[in-house]
Design a protein around this nucleic acid. Structure first.
Lengths: 211, 211
DNA sequence: ACGATATGAATGAATG
DNA sequence: CATTCATTCATATCGT
């Protein structure tokens, strides 16, 4: 796991992009977190118990981490998502079917990371934020958003799709051709419920009061 | 025949998928949209402003898409839900426009496309924005349209279904009636909906919070 | 270099 | 409608 070396060639907060290959996609290779970034993220994850940061938190985190290298909101988002998912995934696989197959991933002492003062229940930071708990020299306080100030939208998408499929038919997108005659039926029942989705489990929180 | 295309054709055997490891080929419980399906969905989403299709629409769409591969109503439903949600989420990460930014979207009434009758302002658009969709299949209003949020061309993300063969042509299968006057049909399918989804499949796993 | 592993990214499905 | 979980793909990096 993270016991690896930190060889990030980072240092350039722009991702350098030394791509020489002119492959299909060469845009920004996937985000390669720097050591600092990783450290901060882990700090937030373990020391602050941040697992699923909200949009505001993500913005703050990414803004903070941007100082150490190029990073976007989605990177932070995915990072936490993956980190959490992976931890759980491993835990669940911790037996089941015992050995005998799936030599996929060897057990990794990921738990080793828990060297910090892991012994206190996290104070629910999902909505709030750590009072301080400055442990690492890069702690950021995900305080109140206050005034975010919108910026530009650049959210670049990765086009891994190699199929350019440019000149296909005279329609390019084939809008007209592929148009599905769904027709916006104004009289659609519009009941509000989705017949596709089966009802809830067994109870309709009708009489249930809020927690 | 569906000509070549790359559909994975999962009429029965979903397996097909693409590569993946040979782990467990449990019938991929997950719907794997084909290129055409995605294309059509995007077309509906962007060019027609469909975002929260109603049951009728979902049925129509799924029926149409079924020509390109196995698909259920819920798949369509979820697709739109996710697509919409993700767009918003993404935006949220990059620019927290708070709630009242609204740079300045001008609902250009230019195209009298969306002129709700004296009664319902497009039940299709829960978000309340002109879908500019051609209620009449015969019309294509893919013009500039003043989409408040996204007026760009589809072409967003892709999928690993990166199957070559760009030839999108030959979509003849049943698509011949593309611009047929399905339009507003008061008698359309009329509530013949049936529950697709079943209850949940998984039981709540251990809700381990942390260690 | 290649194979394995680690991990970022994407998205279907589901729940609240 | 938002939030989250699970699964899978894609790729960077490391080991040999």
């Amino acid at each position: 796991m993270e016991t690896q070396q930190n060889h990030q060639q980072q240092g350039n907060e722009d991702g350098g992009n030394k791509n020489s290959n002119f492959l299909c996609r060469q845009s920004s290779t996937r985000w390669t977190p720097t050591t600092e970034q990783i450290r901060i993220l882990k700090d937030l994850y373990y020391n602050n118990g941040v697992r699923s940061p909200t949009a505001e938190q993500i913005q703050r985190i990414s803004a903070k981490l941007r100082q150490y290298g190029k990073i976007e909101g989605k990177n932070v988002f995915y990072w936490f998502q993956n980190h959490k998912a992976r931890e759980r995934q491993k835990k669940r696989f911790t037996s089941t079917t015992s050995a005998s197959d799936v030599p996929m991933h060897h057990r990794s002492p990921a738990a080793g990371v828990w060297k910090y003062h892991q012994g206190h229940p996290f104070p629910n930071n999902l909505t709030g934020f750590p009072s301080s708990s400055s442990s690492s020299p890069g702690v950021l306080n995900i305080g109140p958003v206050g005034h975010p100030g919108y910026g530009s939208v650049a959210m670049e998408k990765s086009f891994r799709d190699c199929s350019i499929s440019s000149s296909v038919d005279g329609n390019g997108s084939g809008l007209g051709q592929n148009f599905v005659g769904v027709g916006v039926d104004p009289y659609s029942s519009g009941g509000g419920y989705h017949p596709f989705l089966e009802k809830r489990k067994y109870v309709d929180y009708e009489t249930l009061e809020d927690e």
